[in-house]
């Protein structure tokens, strides 16, 4: 039996538009179950605990990366529970990596129930599944949801993006990898990835290799920041501006404390220590995926 935890705020309340069609589809596939909706902060975690107590073996996060993160932090450690995903959020990096594109495709994938175990990372007492970000990606995560909103919200998104691109200053960061070597860089963005796939041919992420992939983007021109922020497109950034490192642990220090986004949500600030978790996550995946 399936337990669906819906975050109605995800993706500019996308679920409101598709809810009836979604339930109809699930019914047709024979995987209808209990639907619950979060109503405020910490609600997703609470609802997940309730689902586990009721004995559900498949818990489906209906939302984006942030919603998935809250669900997995409650399910982890319970070997009997499998995570499912219906992507309706602003950022759906994990769903994309798992080959789950769109809510309709997600229902078919849930029904076929192919389960894989993937790596998790650990930071600030939490597990994460896609990435930890510092710099532009972290500061931008707070306004990204506006891009999927109404006309006024989209206009606000454009204005804030322009303003952020004009005012953003590179961050002086020091990164220590596995205690073996240190890197210093004036960074536009630092992304520590477990399963976030980058649209760059020389960055290969593997969610089952037991390693974290750290991408450091150094200072780039304002117009490239705009493109990066608006289209999530890093393909115009040339190779000399990009560094890539692989390790099991990373410690990141910055001159002044900077916000740290974990799976798209601001959770803590620097300095921060990130490492591979000793636990894995069971998740339903598509047959065609990025790994």
């Amino acid at each position: 039996m399936y337990y669906y935890i819906v975050n109605p705020a995800a993706g500019g309340s996308k679920i409101n538009k598709i809810q009836d069609k979604l339930k109809s589809r699930l019914r047709a596939l024979g995987i209808m179950g209990e639907f619950v909706k979060s109503t405020g902060p910490d609600d997703v975690a609470k609802l997940t605990r309730m689902g586990i107590e009721k004995g559900y073996k498949t818990i489906v996060a209906v939302g984006g990366d942030g919603t998935i993160n809250e669900v997995l932090n409650e399910t982890i450690g319970n070997d009997k529970v499998v995570l499912g995903i219906i992507p309706t959020g602003t950022t759906n990096d994990l769903a994309d990596a798992l080959g789950i594109r769109g809510w309709y495709a997600a229902t078919g994938i849930l029904a076929s129930r192919k389960v894989e175990e993937i790596d998790l990372g650990r930071v600030a007492g939490r597990y994460f599944i896609t990435s930890v970000a510092i710099g532009f990606d972290a500061e931008f995560s707070g306004i990204k949801r506006l891009a999927n909103g109404n006309i006024l919200e989209r206009a606000m998104f454009g204005t804030k993006l322009l303003s952020k691109s004009a005012s953003f200053r590179p961050i002086k960061a020091k990164l220590k990898f596995d205690g073996n070597y240190e890197v210093e860089a004036d960074s536009f963005s630092i992304i520590v990835s477990n399963s976030k796939f980058f649209p760059l041919p020389f960055v290969k992420t593997a969610p089952k290799d037991n390693l974290l992939d750290t991408v450091v983007i150094t200072k780039i021109p304002g117009y490239k920041m705009l493109r990066y922020g608006y289209l999530s497109d890093a393909s115009s950034i040339e190779l000399p501006k990009i560094s890539v490192f692989h390790s099991e642990t990373i410690e990141i220090e910055t001159k002044k404390p900077k916000e740290v986004a974990v799976d798209g949500q601001i959770v803590t600030e620097t300095p921060v220590k990130i490492k591979m978790a000793d636990k894995k996550l069971k998740v339903i995946v598509a047959r065609k995926r990025k790994f």
Binding site: N180, Y181, E182, V183, E184, A185, D186, P201, F202, K204, A206, D209, L211, V216, T218, K219, L239, P240, K241, I242, S243, V244, F245, H246
Partner: peptide, 27 residues
Amino acid sequence: PGGSETIVGASVKLKGNLRSDGDILIE
């Protein structure tokens, strides 16, 4: 390029013992 490559980009300074199983590109 490609694979599990370590890349030290231009304007980045690395200090210490870098050990890898894959290719390394230093700019």
